[in-house]
Nucleic acid binder design. Structure first.
Lengths: 162, 162
DNA sequence: CGCTATTGGTTGACGGGTCAGCCATTACAG
DNA sequence: CTGTAATGGCTGACCCGTCAACCAATAGCG
């Protein structure tokens, strides 16, 4: 039956699958274009954006992680690759020998400065410009709601806890 | 300036980043849960859903691809792995020696039958139930609009064409 | 017919992410 | 202090997807 709790109605199914498909197709396209004309992957772009929004392009790695909601190994792997390409540099933090500082190099700043305008233009063309201002606000509201809900969820745990 | 065409206003930025983040967090969570209690990855689940919706669980590989909007190598790699695990089987098509038939094995049908209810429940909890029916319809409308727009876009081409 | 283009599919190398496990350092309790 | 926990970060193995190159079969044109 269409209203059974563990099944989706056609209305719900269309929204869910549509949303899934939209995001896979949209990001596939955007990431392809981004990579093609700037040489940056989506993750690299994201990271450079956050860094470049910070004064001096310097911030503790852990702050970066919590801002991007990334796993620690993800940031670590990416930083290694980006450091090799000269986009960022690592510095040690005298206050805490564990933590590391991530620094935007001139080359890194240059990369994001060159890549951003075209990318933003495409985001506009393929997403923003297709919506009314009201729809934009609804998307924002839904996103915030879902994210808040997810944040309140208990973490995943193995089948052995009290 | 905030209204410069190649830049996003705060309103637009919130919608765009929110949408990005929502989807990364939501699918991270759903895929983790799915994998944990069914052993299926998101792609495997998607593929099995399409197959199981087909009578007899048999369909030409190419149809699968166009329905999922996947690259051909993606399907090929995934099929190899799933065949090894006994979830699907390949058969040759007598009508066209190039094409291949993908068949759901009993084991594959079993896997999707077991995995679906829990997964759907979570989609409901973390997404559907957080929205009003009107919002659901708006999400559907936006997705369809964006997908239609993307479909009309010319393919990516190297910088050497007329 | 025969040649070329197109189509369906595979493969291997690679970039990317997760996971589990590790190490060093700091925090904190007794 | 001292031992234990928590934190910040790194690494290696593995899964996954893209890309480019390839191959076989078919279509379709001369």
């Amino acid at each position: 039956m269409a209203t059974e709790p563990s099944w989706l109605s056609t209305r719900e199914d269309r929204a869910w699958r549509g949303s899934l498909r939209m995001h896979s197709q949209l990001s596939a396209r955007l990431n392809q274009d981004l990579l093609q004309d700037s040489g940056l992957s989506a993750s690299e772009y994201e990271m450079l954006v956050v860094l470049s929004e910070h004064p001096d392009g310097r911030m503790p790695a852990q702050r970066l992680r919590s801002q991007l909601l990334w796993e620690k190994s993800r940031l670590s792997h990416l930083m290694r690759r980006m450091e090799q390409r000269g986009l960022i540099a690592r510095e040690s933090n005298p206050a805490d020998a564990r933590s590391a500082m991530v620094c935007l190099t001139p080359q890194g700043r240059n990369a994001i400065t060159e890549a951003a305008p075209d990318h933003v233009l495409r985001v506009r063309q393929h997403f923003i410009d297709l919506m009314t201002p009201e729809e934009l606000d609804i998307v924002t509201a839904i996103s915030d709601r879902v994210l808040a809900h997810l944040a309140e969820l208990p973490e995943i745990e193995d089948p052995a806890d009290c």
